[in-house]
């Protein structure tokens, strides 16, 4: 029996009807709301490709059932900045060319944005620890660390 849910995604309230309250948020966002990110990588919470913020916290949407997030505020990659008003980490990512295929970058960017909020000048070790459970198969790891460092410098004003 379909049940109605109302959720906030990237500052827009969305209402939808879903049969299965256990439907993971990933499928809600992609299939019900037609969003292109987050992405499906494992469905097991192991890789991070599906990461969104729930009330500011990086969360793996592939293992988060819809029923658990009713009154929460969801932010996706598209909600953290745009080409006209990019988040510093998005700008740094472009400068450092921190992606090849880019399929993994929801995990790195959403986790990186949260890290920079809680720790504006993270050490290299803090950066690596924050993103160590995010999978990348192209080998962009060094560039990812450089991008997060650059964004940190941009945010504290060392670099434009």
């Amino acid at each position: 029996m379909a049940k109605s849910y109302s959720i906030s995604v990237d500052e827009v309230n969305r209402t939808l009807e879903v049969d299965d309250p256990n439907m993971p948020l990933l499928y809600v966002l992609r299939d019900e709301l037609g969003m292109n990110n987050p992405r499906f990588g494992c469905g097991l919470g192991q890789c991070g490709a599906c990461t969104v913020h729930i009330d500011g916290q990086p969360t793996r949407s592939c293992v988060t059932p819809l029923s658990a997030i009713s009154s929460s505020k969801i932010t996706t990659l598209a909600g953290i900045g745009s080409a006209n008003a990019p988040h510093p980490l998005q700008s740094a990512w472009i400068v450092e060319e921190a992606s090849q295929c880019g399929y993994c970058l929801n995990g790195f960017l959403m986790t990186g944005v949260a890290l920079l909020k809680s720790s504006p000048s993270p050490t290299e070790m803090e950066i690596k620890t924050a993103v160590e459970n995010i999978k990348c198969r192209c080998g962009t790891h060094l560039a990812v660390v450089r991008a997060i460092k650059r964004a940190s410098q941009m945010m504290v004003g060392d670099v434009k």
């Binding site: 992405r39 472009i94 992606s99 880019g102 970058l105």
Partner: peptide, 27 residues
């Protein structure tokens, strides 16, 4: 020369094959 595909990727605008949606499409 810098790649031009990174910007749409970090803005969540890049469309992968997994984003193809056709009318009446089943999964």
């Amino acid at each position: 020369t810098v790649r031009t595909d990174i910007s749409p990727k970090v803005m969540g605008k890049f469309e992968y094959v997994s984003d193809v949606r056709l009318p009446g499409m089943l999964h």
